[in-house]
Design a protein around this nucleic acid. Structure first.
Lengths: 193, 193
DNA sequence: CCTGACTGTTACCGGCGGTAACAGTGGTCG
DNA sequence: CGACCACTGTTACCGCCGGTAACAGTCAGG
């Protein structure tokens, strides 16, 4: 039975079409639009992905895996902690700069976050990844409260600043990542006293 | 003409009904459900608020004004900067703890954020408020890039950590606000080296 | 040639946001 | 008094969405 082989290829093609539509229309892409982009009709989409959440989950997984891999690379690279953090923040910003529509889809779309109950939200996975890194670096238990809270806070910090930057574009990317690294290293506390 | 007087009272009643439905059903409250809660039908809602975004904007404004007022009070209170920041974070957490549904509505609802193009998103207003505070405290220009970026980052940090905490509830509120204040004062940088 | 699995379609369902068009009601004028 | 008018309220509809049932073509294997 060669159907299974074609099935996977088809699934990839459908995901590519969905990706194109999301990049064009934003997170409000409708199933009919995605089906039209792929040159087919809605029921085929539903046969492949179940509900809309399934498609969104599969779509999100592709991008999150890519981004998380890139972040792991920079996070686990050598060098002093501060430079490593700076490079990691910059990597994140570079990705959201290159594909803002995809990024908005990952972060804002409720469907992607609540998808299938299986693929957790992109932000959640990022927090967990960073929490593990922090716990390892500080010699804490992997499920330490401090590591988890700080990871969530740092992810939110970079994400919110990145959101704002995508809309204002009022500085160079390097400058933004430098400012955030400073903030993370206590520059605000020092300046405020 | 006493209609105008009644109009405002009616508007308040409708907002109260919408508030009740949102608190019960979350951000996915439908216009029909809100109308039913108020004992009327949909077109009346639309006559008062235009589109759904208008209602959501009005609803958001109520809560944001209350919350922003509370935050301004703690932010502008006396005391050393670190204690002030700690108290402000704790105020924010207390509010989202007391009314998580309202909070989710304010932060997650796209309608509230994009509402009418007029009432900007709650998060945006919070960022601007904090940016002004930081710029004032550090003696910077009110539109200084550093203040804007840091404000956005800090708001995102507290919000993300608060989100996570609402779901896990794995510590006391005071502990969480203390951890976030530490992070803001550079504890992570110090620990990481 | 018939059966059955697979791929594809059309046509529908219920629910949503939003609106048009009409019905009741009570003041204000000639 | 009746004609008018502004206002409040309703029902009934539109188009779009996510999701699905039911049917049509195609092709392998007995």
């Amino acid at each position: 039975m060669i159907a299974l082989q074609n099935r996977d290829a088809r699934r990839e093609a459908l995901l590519a079409a969905a990706d194109a539509v999301v990049q064009r229309d934003g997170a409000s892409a409708s199933m009919a639009a995605i089906a039209a982009e792929a040159g087919i009709t809605k029921p085929i989409l539903y046969r492949h992905f179940g509900a809309k959440g399934g498609l969104y989950a599969a779509l999100a997984e592709r991008h999150t895996d890519r981004l998380l891999d890139a972040l792991v690379v920079t996070l686990t690279a050598g060098g002093p902690p501060r430079e490593r953090v700076h490079r990691t923040i910059d990597t994140y910003l570079a990705v959201i700069e290159a594909e803002p529509q995809v990024y908005r889809f990952l972060v804002q779309s409720e469907e992607a976050a609540l998808a299938h109950g299986q693929v957790r939200g992109f932000v959640r996975r990022l927090q967990e990844l960073l929490a593990a890194g922090i716990a390892h670096e500080l010699g804490l238990d992997p499920v330490d409260l401090r590591a988890a809270v700080w990871a969530a806070g740092i992810v939110g910090m970079v994400q919110a600043a990145g959101d704002r930057w995508l809309e204002t574009r009022d500085c160079e990317r390097q400058e933004l990542s430098a400012l955030l690294t400073e903030l993370l290293w206590g520059a605000y506390g020092v300046a405020a006293g």
